[in-house]
Structure formats: structure tokens, C-alpha cells
Amino acid sequence: MSGQFVAFFILSLLTIGGAVFMISLQKVVHQVVALAFSFLSIAGLYVMLEAEFVAVTQVLVYAGSISILMLFGIMLTRHDAHEDTGRGKFKFLAFIVVAAFFVLVFMGIQTMNIEGTPANFSQQNNVLEIGKLMFSQYVIPFEIMSVLLLVALVGAIILAKREADDK
């Protein structure tokens, strides 16, 4: 049992535990905090996969901005404390569907056979290599992504802005 397995076990336990708490907790703010734990542990999983830049981006974007944005969304709206009732049948149906999906994909993972040597990213500078690729081979997706961010920014402002006549 090497240290890597122990780290993977703890990180995946935290990830799945945070997600399960997100589903099962009652208060909305608690759910968001549980999910923030899950996001942080996923960043740890990225570090184990030698994707340091993606891990830092995960902490910045998910654990930082998306959690805070969700908290803002909760604070700006009103949430009743009562838990939903009377949908037991639908919940059961959804559970059956999700369980069937889980079993199917699990069987797919078990029978999967990928031949190939694992990449050895630890010898190279991760950020440097990503930057080189991003600005040479993937420069057009990069620019399109910046346009998308601009459109999302403008769209979010226009959607959330109070209209002039309903003051």
C-alpha cells in the first residue's frame, strides 16, 4: 500500500463524501459548502494526475468563484426550509434510472482495455507546455473561448438587470 494509494483513497473519499452531503443536507448554504469541499478534493486528484495547472484553475474557478457566486445566488433569493414531499414515486424512478446508468458504465469501465504507456508529465514544466500548446495549436479555440466569456458577461448583466419600467 503505497502513499499514492492512500492519498487517492482519502481524496476520492472526500470528493464523494462532499457530493453525498450536497445531496443529503437540508439547508442550501450547507449544501454549497459541502460541494466546495468536493471541488477542493478534485483539485487534489488533478495534482495526483500531474495536472498542476488544471488543479490551480480548479481551485480558482470552482472553489473560489463558482461557490461564491452560488452563495450570492442563494442570498439574493428566498429559500423555504421545508423539504420536498409527495414526489417519492418520481424519486424512486430517478434512482432506478441513475442506478441502471451506473451499472452500464461500470461494466464498460471493467471491460475497457486501453493499450498505451502512461504519459510522464513530471519531467516537463506543466504550465510551460500547456502555454505553448494553447498559443500555437489551440489558439483559435482559445480566442473563441474569450469571445464566449465576453458574451456570457454581457448576457448575464442584461438578464439580471432590472428593467426600466418595473420599478
Binding site: M70, L76, G155
Partner: peptide
């Protein structure tokens, strides 16, 4: 961002 704007 867009989803929360729609929600609000």
C-alpha cells in the same frame, strides 16, 4: 454566470 442571472 448566465444560469444565476436567469434565476435572479
Amino acid at each position: 454566470a448566465v444560469g444565476l442571472a436567469i434565476l435572479i
